[in-house]
Amino acid sequence: MRSGIVESMEALVSEAERTGKKIGELVLEYEAKLKDVPRDEVWREMERRWRVMKDSVIKATAKPPQLPFKELTGMSRKVLTRKPLFLGSPLMKAVARSMAVAEYNASMGRICAAPTAGSAGILPAVLYTVMEEYEISEDSIVLALFTAGGIGLIIANRASISGAEAGCQAECGVASAMAAGALVELFEGSPRMVADAVAIALKNLMGLICDPVAGLVVSPCIKRNAIGVMNAFLSAEMALAGVKSLIPCDEVIDAMGEVGRKLPLEFKETGLGGIAATPTAEKLKKSLTGQI
């Protein structure tokens, strides 16, 4: 049953193993069937979204936008122009790009949510960087977006992709898991390895709360895009090395949803807890609303 493939990672992985197709191809076929349109049409729509993502990386890194908190303006530029000490150069670039796109989003730039606007830096940064560094074709990247999208669909329906419902683990955590799975498939990992990468990535960021200062998608959101990128590469690298998740991916997803439901409301995009409730954050919030 085709539509069943987005019910669970197990169904998606089994179908890929059974047919020998990539997860991305299965998701492309699913979407064409869902919309009752030719595959080409669905493909072109994803290409259009990839162009928006690429565009957001290019524009965001060209000129760092102004942020509501002036002291944060130019963060991504600082990272981008520094010769990395600890990280490899591609990883450093990917981190900087994710921050740049998150900054661009915060300053009313045009982005493609993936899966949300607040986590929109992660997938474009990861995919743009590997495309450039490893000479991967645009078609492979577009196919990887279907892989990522399929993973996101499963998580959205089993758990959540909303910070207001389940905290940042459901936004940056899910974006990171989507990127990790997409990376594994791009670099010829097995469908099983994709599921392991998703499970590892989700576990690493499980419980992450959504606590935006003054309710704005700026702090700590921009830096959480950066950790989402690091975690995606880390989880993909581990899965490609053959590291398995002890707990099956679907159970990890369900656990993430459960953690999200049980998180106190203060930690779910209300701006009332965590970083948002610190004395400095309260002061910053007052200084912003004081402008009204």
């Binding site: 979204r49 009313m108 045009r110 959205a156 992709i161 704005l216």
Partner: peptide, 16 residues
């Protein structure tokens, strides 16, 4: 959520 374009998308002007 049915469509993959609700996950990879929407295309929008940020931040929220």
């Amino acid at each position: 959520v049915e469509s993959v374009f609700e996950i990879i998308g929407p295309v929008m002007v940020g931040p929220s």
